[in-house]
Amino acid sequence: MKTVIIKYNAGNVQSVMYALDRIGATYLLTDDEAEIRSADKVIFPGVGEASTAMAYLRERGLDRVIPSLKQPVLGTCVGMQLLCRYSEEGDTTCMGVFDVDVRRFPAQPGFKVPHMGWNSLTDLKGPLTEGLPENAYVYFVHSYCADVCPETSAVCNYVRPFSAMLQKDNFYAAQFHAEISGNIGQRILENFLKIDTRN
C-alpha cells in the first residue's frame, strides 16, 4: 500500500511520520501531483496559518489536486480547516470539500485560546472512530474550529460544540493531532490506513 503525506509549508510533519513509523506503515513525503494521485491513501497534515498555507497550495496547483482525489484522504488540524469552505483566519477561501466554515473561538472568561490539551470526543461516526469509546481523549492545539454540521463525525466541546472530525465521501478530517494522541490517536491512524479502497 502506498501512503503519501502531502509536503507543504504548513508545519512540521515529523510527528506524523514518527506516528506512522510506530505503527509500521511506510509512506512518502511529496508535493508531486503524480505521486499523490497514485497513492492508496493520502495524509494532508498541517500546522500554521491558513492563508499562508492556502497561498502555498495555490501556487503549486495543489488546491485543485486535493479536492479532486478519489482515494481516502485524511486532513489533520490546519489540513482539516483548509478542506472546509472558508476560514476566518486570514479571511481565507479554502478548498470547500466540507460544507462548513471555520471560525475563531469566541472570547469567553475561563476559556483560554488556543484550545490546548486533551479533550474528549462524542457522537462518534464512521470508520475512523471504530473501536473508540465515547469520550475518548485526544490532543488539540487550535484557535479556530469548524461548526458542527451534517458532515461532523465526532464532536468536541470547548466554549461551544465544534467538529472534532468530519467525513464526506472519501474525505476524512480530524481537528486534533492524532499523531500524538496516545493509543486513541494511533487507533484512528490505523483505522484510516485500514479503510478498504476496493470498490
Binding site: Q14, S15, Y18, R22, E179, I180, S181, G182, G185
Partner: peptide, 30 residues
C-alpha cells in the same frame, strides 16, 4: 524519544536560535 512516545513532548535547555529550534522539531520534538 519520538520513536517510542505517542504523546506530545517538549524539549528545553540552551535553545537560543531558529536553527536550534528547527533541529529539535525536525528530530521529532512537538
Amino acid at each position: 524519544v519520538a520513536h517510542v512516545v505517542n504523546i506530545p513532548f517538549t524539549v528545553g535547555g540552551g535553545i537560543s536560535s531558529k536553527a536550534d529550534v528547527s533541529a529539535l522539531l525536525n528530530a521529532g520534538a512537538d
